[in-house]
Design a protein around this nucleic acid. Structure first.
Lengths: 150, 150
DNA sequence: TATTGTTATACTCTATAACTATA
DNA sequence: TATAGTTATAGAGTATAACAATA
């Protein structure tokens, strides 16, 4: 999917168009950069949650990432098959799976984060001055705002 | 899909997360605002292209929006059924369909654009000062940049 | 032979409902 | 009975291949 070839601002100026295409492009770059490590942008999101807090249940990870718990099953299946995370029944409540990064997973995570930061840096490189920071902060403000009419 | 409840910046600070969730939220707001008019954000994109240039073939509209021509068929089918656009074989090359806004379509388009602008305005309302403008310009710069490694 | 629009088909992503095992 | 994980299934959205009409 290539972008705006003969489109004027009437079309490309829409915020929806801009957000969608910016995301698509970043996601493609990210996917390619992470490929050699065996992970993709979505599973890197899972690793980030696992790395940033105490061992959590599958469902908690799913809720934190706003992903359906049924979707999380396949995601963690794949990471487990790769030896990146482990599933262990929680002693005390054996319905729950404790999901943790393995030692190998910690290494993959570190390298994936490095690759991810490099891609993001390259992605915002064309922006001048503090614009990259403003962009990030503005998006964060918007995403953490509760938009009504829901 | 609700957003960040207990997520730290380790996760929500990723540009990919921010772009994806900002888009999802805006798209949901836009969908709801356009619903009474019988259009959705994607078909509004089609209307924008049709309104901003000389009558074009289906394929040209598809290329301009980076949408597959087979996807465009269903999109225009729906708009045609609603009486918003018309398809006419191009005299001179009857393989091509000239796609145009009907009179009713022009009215729908005008009202959809008004609704769209209102939603975008509300969406960036939490941003201070010129940040909304910087956001828009930064995204435009990124989207029109040719990112290599493709 | 190449091109536009179309249909049929498949693949991805995601969500809903139902099942199991635990509680 | 309620909950975590799982499975099966279905619905969007999109892409690929093949076909008809036209050039």
């Amino acid at each position: 999917m290539s972008n705006s070839l003969g489109l004027g601002r009437e079309v490309t100026g829409s915020l929806g168009y801009l957000l969608k295409h910016a995301h698509l492009e970043l996601d493609a770059l990210m996917t390619r950069a992470l490929e050699p490590l065996g992970v993709d942008p979505r599973s890197l999101g899972v690793l980030r949650v696992l790395a940033s807090r105490e061992p959590t249940s599958q469902q908690e990870v799913a809720q934190l990432l706003s992903v359906d718990r049924t979707t999380m099953v396949a995601l963690i299946d794949s990471l487990e098959r790769q030896g990146i995370v482990s599933r262990t029944p929680l002693p005390g409540d054996r319905r729950r799976n404790v999901v943790e990064l393995t030692t190998a997973g910690l290494d993959v995570f570190a390298r994936a984060e490095a690759a991810s930061h490099a891609v993001e840096h390259e992605f915002v490189a064309p922006l001048a001055g503090r614009d990259a920071t403003v962009l990030r902060e503005a998006l964060h403000t918007i995403v953490t705002t509760d938009h009504p009419d829901a």
